[in-house]
Structure formats: C-alpha cells, structure tokens
Design a protein around this nucleic acid. Structure first.
Ligand SMILES: [Mn+2]
Ligand SMILES: [Mn+2]
Ligand SMILES: [Mn+2]
Ligand SMILES: [Mn+2]
Lengths: 218, 218
DNA sequence: AATAATTTTTAGACAAGTCTAAAAATTATT
DNA sequence: AATAATTTTTAGACTTGTCTAAAAATTATT
C-alpha cells in the first residue's frame, strides 16, 4: 500500500527531477511540498526502503522505474480530472488544479480508464500539459518559454508552467489563453520584461510571466 | 477543518442513529467502522469538543444539527458519485460503493453542485437510496423489507439495505434489480425464508436476503 | 588548505488515530 | 439486593508524518 503522502512526495520528485531522470535534493523537495528538510529526509528513507527511489546520504534522490510509474499514473489522473472538470462541469482553467490535487489520489483502475474513455481520450489537459495514456505513454511537447522567444517572430501559446489561480487569472484578464497568437515585439534587457502583440493590442509582460508561458513557433 | 476520519465517524453515527435522531452506542460505532471501542471513545470526545454531537460518559452519542449537516452532505456526495459511475462510466451497481467511499470526501462545493446538475439532479442512487439536494432536503422513501411483506401481494423492488458486492451480485445472478416485480408466495415460519415469484420463475430467498431487500406495494 | 556558508541528517518531541489490557460503570440475572 | 455479565472508559503504548534544534557533511570562499 502506498499512502497519499508518499504519492505526493513521488510526484514532486518526478516533476522536480525532469520526469524522474535527474537527481533531486532534499531542500528542493521541502520547498515544493511546503515542509521541512528533516521531514523530507525521513520520508525519502521510507521511499527508498519501498524501492521507489535511490537514496544515498547527502547525495539527493533519483526515482527508480517503479517510482516513475507511480508518478506518471498520478499525473495521468490529475490531468484527466482537470479535463473532466473543465469540459463537463463548467470549471475554468484556474479552478481545477486544487480539486485535481485531491482527485488524483482516488485509487481505481476502472475509474481512471473509464473516465479517459468518457472524455474521448484527451491528449492534453486545460493547461496544455500532455496526458499519459493507459500505458503511461505521452508526447513531451516542444515548448519554448516566452522568455526565450525571438524578437520579431510569431508564436502560439500552448501551455503554462505555473497553474496557480493567480497566474491564470492574470492571463485571463489580459486575454491570453491556449491558442492565442503572440508576436514578440521587444525584449527589455534591463529587467527581462517582454513587449508582445496580441491580435491588435500590445502589452508588456514581466520576466516572471515570460518564464511561465510556453509557446510554439507558428 | 474536519478530517476524513471524523467524517467517517459522523456518517456512521448518522446511519446507525436513524438519520441522526437516535442515540448510538460506542460498540455499534466500533462495529460499523471496524475499529475498537476504545478508539471510538477517543474520537467521540473530539467530535463532542468540535460540537458535532452530544456525548455523556456511558450514555452514548447523538448528533447535533451541525453533525447532521456534515453527514447529509457526505451522503449527498456519496450517492451523486454512485450515479455518475453507473450512468457515465459503465460501472455496475455492485462496483460503485467502494469507490464512492473515497470520492465522498473530496471537498468542493462547486464540484458537487456541478456534478448534480451534470447528472440532471437525480433523486435516487443506483441502490434506490434518495439523494439529498443542495439544501440537504430529500424524501425518505416508504419501503417495506421483503421479510415484512404480505403473502399473496405483489410488490416492486425499490432498494437494498446492504450495498455489498456479494449481495448485489447475488441479486444480479437471480435477475432481481430495482423495478423487478415480486409476488410473495409463501413465508416459511421455520427459518423465515420466503418463496417469491419473479415474472414466471419461483425461487426461495433466505431470511438474510429478505431483510435486505426493500419493496413497495404495486 | 583552512575557514565560512550552506545543505543535509540526526535526535528528540508532538498530534492524530489506533491498539491492548485493566478499571469503572451499567445492565442483566439470580 | 447482591452477583455476574456486558459495555464503556482509562492508561499507556505504537505508527505516521511532522517539527525544532543541534550535529555532521558538503560546497564555496578566501
Ligand atoms: Mn494541475
Ligand atoms: Mn494541469
Ligand atoms: Mn454506497
Ligand atoms: Mn448507494
């Protein structure tokens, strides 16, 4: 049996470690989970015992196959529920993350697979993130952060890094969403803000925003 | 904040105490939750502190208004999820209870109310039990246990007391479901078994079955 | 290479929920 | 009314996950 808490640690390590490929340090996990480093050390030992990851004192952790499997399955559930909430229950994209954080821990193979079918096997969630299929397969999308886009080129918005209500509502109030066409007008070297053009209107976004918005060349 | 465990205690007390109207003893709660009487005493003290119920040592407990509200809301969620699983995700009536036991603890007003609307405000769950509305209102259905039905009369099956997989699969394999017409042929005084007629076939059901099947006069 | 700063681990404590065993109260039986 | 049986509570312990404070290891700086 795997506990809800263990699942959350594994998921955090998966995301922090680039789909489980890299080593993740104690403090990074503590930050992501709003807990203390000492708690992380305790938990990480337990997860190593349970064979979900490799841990050597002072050397950080790396997920093993079984840990990645757990993580991918939680991500699958999280994103399918997000689609369900938006498509069927009139949630907006800034409302779904919090509820999905809880729904992702419901354990029923049949539930997740039937939900997947009911939604007609969606490939992306409301934030543009890919949804792993039954076998854990998914396409990592090629995305460029707005902060790394080239001046003069035209892009389409395809995702966000930050799924917080605050950030998504900021985008809403500026008419930026998935599919929005964005032209890069100017990059300000001084503070790394970026001037962009949407349809007809121009606006300046901060570095923080630019780092959290993903684009694809049009 | 109310914990998942507290919610389960309150729900059990609600069901054991006739919709929260009657006093419930420690051992009954322990039985229902597969726990020990000593654990129940501890938890019941906490629930009394939190004002969900009245507790006097050795006198059992009775839910207060706020406890009943909590219970009704959980029951509402449980039954709505059961409907969702059967109507939308191809679950059978014997598969839903276990999953609903987890889904009922997801805390989001919007989620439950939108789910209710999405399902077109169902009034009964897959086992014939009434679903409380947004305001906690529902009609207690008038039901007669098969064990108390009258020989010679004809009834319709409208619900079950026991929602366990075993019992529901027994009913399935004997072609008994909600809506099935049942005529009472004979009651055996010796073992309280009942001979019934379904459509054309006759069969004998045990007292245990008869107690767990609810009917309404046709 | 030595010292300082940072990161990580350990040690010990705490809250929630549970358990066993024993004591206390209630209820049933004689 | 006294005794026996049953129910409930208390006392103390254990597990999971958390915390603070201090010790140990690693990394950065001089
Ligand atoms: Mn999310
Ligand atoms: Mn998402
Ligand atoms: Mn149920
Ligand atoms: Mn039900």
């Amino acid at each position: 049996m795997i506990t809800l808490t263990e699942e959350n640690y594994i998921k955090a390590i998966y995301h922090l470690g680039n789909y489980g490929k890299d080593i993740v340090n104690t403090n990074a996990i503590a930050d992501a989970l709003n807990t203390k480093a000492s708690s992380v050390t305790d938990m990480v030992k337990k997860l190593a015992d349970k064979d979900y990851l490799n841990y050597k004192k002072y050397q950080g952790v790396k997920l093993k196959k079984s840990g990645i499997n757990v993580a991918v399955n939680i991500v699958r559930k999280h994103r399918l529920w997000e689609v369900f909430l938006v498509e069927k229950l009139n949630f907006t994209w800034d409302e779904v993350h919090e509820v999905a954080e809880h729904l992702e821990h419901i354990k029923s193979e049949k539930l997740v697979n039937e939900l997947d079918a009911f939604l007609e096997f969606p490939t992306h969630d409301p934030h543009g993130d890919p949804i792993p299929d039954k076998d854990g397969k998914f396409n990592k999308i090629e995305k460029i952060a707005l902060s790394h886009a080239t001046v003069g080129m035209v892009y389409k918005c395809i995702g966000v890094e930050d799924s917080s209500t605050n950030f998504l509502q900021y985008l809403d109030s500026n008419s930026i969403g998935l599919g929005t066409t964005i032209e890069i007008i100017h990059k300000e070297l001084f503070d790394n803000s970026v001037k962009i053009k949407l349809n007809t209107t121009e606006m300046v976004v901060s570095q923080n925003v630019a780092k959290n918005l993903y684009l694809k060349v049009l």
